[in-house]
Amino acid sequence: METDWAIESENLTRAFGDVRAVDDVNLRVRWGSFYGFLGPNGAGKSTTIKMLTGLLEPTSGSMRILGESVRQDQEQLAIKKRIGVVPENLGLFDNLTAREYLTFVGRMYLMPVDTIQQRSEDLLSVLGLQDEHKKLTLEYSHGMKKKLSLAAALLPNPDLLFLDEPFEGVDAVTSRAIRDILSDFVARGSTVFLTSHVLEIVERLCTDVGIIAHGKLIEQGPLDELKQDGSLESLFLQRVGNHEETRVEVSWLKDRAV
C-alpha cells in the first residue's frame, strides 16, 4: 500500500538495559527525497538505521518501509528485495574480489547473471574499481571498501537506499564520485536515507534532514525550511548544543613551557 512516506516510524524505541538509545522517534521520509540523518556521536543514528533495515529489533514502536508494515516476527524478504543497504561494518567478505562479491549479492537478489555482470562492470567503472579486479577486498583501502559496499547496495537498483556514514574516512575524489552517483539515483525518483557527520556534504546533497540527539528526534523537515537564513551548522549547533557553552579551558596548552 503506497503512502506519502517512503519511511515512516511511530514511537520507534530501542533500549539497551536502562539506556534508551532511540527514544520515541517518529520519522517521516518523503518519497524521492534525499534524507540526511544527523546527530552527534552516540546520538542513536546507527541504531535507528539498523532498526529500519531489519538488523536490529526495536524495543517498541512500529515502522513502515516503502509502504509495507515491518513485522518483527517475519523475515521481511519482500522489503529487503526493494532496498539497498551500506551497513556500518560494510558487510564485505575479506577473501572475495569485487566482482565475486557483487556476483554474490546479485545472486542473493536472484538477479540474472548477465544483468549482474553488466551492472557490475558499470558500477566498478564509475567508482574507479575496475582495475582492482584481482585484489581481494581485504587488500582494499577503507575508501575502496566503502565504494564496493555502495556498488553492492546499488546493484539491485533499489527503490530506497540506506547509507550509514558513507562519507566517513573517504578522500575527496571518492566522496565526489559517491555524491554524483547518489544525486543521479535520487534524480530518477528513488529515496536515499543517509547518516553523516559531514554537515557540508549533507547541506549540499540533502533535501530533507532529521536531527537526533540523546536518542530523541529533535528536528525534522525539508532542509530549506529548517535552516531558513542560517547554515545547517548553525542550526545543528543550536539544536544539539553549543561548544562555547560547555567549553573547558586547557590552560597549559597555551603555555610554551614544558
Binding site: 531489519g54 524478504l77 529487503k80 549479492v105 542473493m108
Partner: peptide
Amino acid sequence: EKLMHLPISLR
C-alpha cells in the same frame, strides 16, 4: 552480520 541486510532466509 554480512547476510542480514540481504533478502535471504536467515533460518
